[in-house]
Design a protein around this nucleic acid. Sequence first.
DNA 1: GCGACAG
DNA 2: ATCTTGTCGC
Length: 226
Amino acid sequence: MDLPPFPTPRSPEEAVALQRVLSERLILEGSLEGVRRVAALDAAHKKGKPLVAVAVLYHLEKGPLFVGRGVVEETGLFPYIPGLLSFREAPAYLEALRALPEPPEALLVDGQGIAHPRRLGIAAHLGLHLDLPAVGVAKRLLYGRPQGPLPEEAGSHVPLLSPKGELLGFLYRSRRGVKPLVVSPGHRVGPWEALAFVRALPTRYRLPEPLRLAHLEAGKALKALD
DNA sequence: GCGACAG
DNA sequence: ATCTTGTCGC
């Protein structure tokens, strides 16, 4: 698949301003029922080495079909600043997606969707850029207030609200005895539908299988560089 | 001014 | 993201 160019801001201030504009265009409704081919995105990085991004094309019934990789030299990376992650990693993800034999129907991204100060986590940014449905699954919370305690049972969830009371996503217990995941819609999907989608994914461990595979593949690809 | 802070 | 040993538990 080929895509529009991904602009790199000259400064953090410029990046923030761009996020404010882009987030206005998000569509936060829609269902992912019927989606079969998902691209799971994750990255690995080490100081002195390039950032390696991986896109695992995963068929919800057949399993993993293909792995696309994207590599960006450290010197070409936007700095890591909480809230501006997409400007650092998205270019590598776009390269990984470009390597796939066919475009996915939706994106499953390791990071936030709209559970973000300006509602433009990397999942939202990528979904908007590619005009694809996107869901964010993060391992840690960046923004939002969890409403109440999260039950220990596998599959439990608790809403994540903005200061204004808007539903940003959920804290989700994928398995018993694991730390909760942060699930939030990115683009072209509603919060509840995003949660339903993640809940339906095969999950052997903490992370949904597509993302777990992407994580493993990213680690391998990074180690295999030199 | 003091915390919080995805990957 | 990565740095890291042992340790608890299935």
